[in-house]
């Protein structure tokens, strides 16, 4: 399980981005983190694998205190934390297979990664994952030849190739069209269930979050202002997170066009922020 205690982050000479976040997530739970832009969602998940160094506070995963690890130990800890990015963050000039195999970098010595001679088990796992995300025919394509949805599938495969205990997911759907966004969210949710993965998903589309996660954490100004099941996300809670807005109108629009109105979720999202 993941435990965050009193986590704060302040960039040099600025207002704090995170103020004393405390959060506990049991194994296998999928958590959606919502909040307006600048609420600190992205900093929060980057503090967990220390791509951003937290100013104060503790993060521990499976009773390992990540915030106290040395560089070397940190790299070992990062191997077990898969990360999925907003703009996919694939290395565009490498092939799909190389991108997926880069998930093993923390496990193999430099010479193996340099000569691209990964252990057979890693290669088999990579093929299985590509098959799972529906891209088995694309192994030798260059990553920049793929569409947005396909790229995010490669990103998911790369994260899973790490054989992680936990997934950090940063706005996985922000660069995708509504239909693909839904497919990707469904895929992430299914995979988490298959593997019993704990996941923290930053997402700005409230409706998408409600549909696919088990628990929602609302962030505003670097503080947790909501924590509960998706069903508990009522108007009062939304106002606490995002400020005043006509939430009934949003809901009505959502109810009017439940499945077919996906194209409009981008517009609705725009209304939220």
């Amino acid at each position: 399980m993941l435990r965050i205690e009193g986590l704060s982050k302040r960039y040099r000479a600025g207002v704090p981005v995170l103020r004393g976040i405390t959060l506990e997530v049991p194994a296998g739970q999928v958590v959606g983190v919502i909040g307006p832009s600048g609420a600190g969602k992205s900093t929060l998940i980057r503090c967990i694998n220390r791509l951003v160094e937290p100013t104060t506070g503790r993060v521990s995963l499976k009773d390992i205190d990540i915030t106290a690890l040395s560089r070397r130990r940190l790299r070992q800890a990062r191997r077990r934390i898969g990360m999925i990015f907003q703009e996919f963050a694939l290395v565009e000039r490498l092939s799909v297979m190389e991108n997926v195999l880069s998930g093993r970098l923390g496990y193999v010595p430099f010479w193996r990664s340099f000569t691209r001679r990964f252990p057979q088990a890693d290669i088999e796992a990579a093929f299985a994952l590509l098959d799972r995300v529906g891209l088995s025919d694309f192994a030798d394509q260059r990553a920049d030849a793929l569409s947005g949805g396909q790229r995010q599938r490669v990103g998911i495969a790369r994260a899973l190739e790490q054989n992680p205990d936990m997934l950090l997911v940063d706005e996985p759907t922000a660069s995708l069209d509504p239909r693909t966004a839904r497919q990707i969210m469904r895929l992430i949710r299914e995979i988490c269930e298959e593997r019993g993965l704990l996941a923290l998903i930053n997402i700005h589309d409230v409706l998408l979050a409600q549909q696919f996660v088990q628990r929602i954490v609302g962030l505003r100004g670097g503080e947790i202002v909501f924590d509960g099941p998706p069903a508990g996300l009522n108007e009062a809670a939304l106002t606490r997170i995002y400020g005043e807005e006509d939430w009934t109108a949003m809901r009505r629009a959502a109810d009017d066009a439940p499945e077919t109105g996906e194209e409009r979720s981008e517009e609705r999202m725009a209304g939220l922020i």
Binding site: M97, L101, T115, F118, I123, E124, A126
Partner: peptide, 8 residues
Amino acid sequence: AGRPVWQH
């Protein structure tokens, strides 16, 4: 069938 092979 068979073990998949991947060469760079």
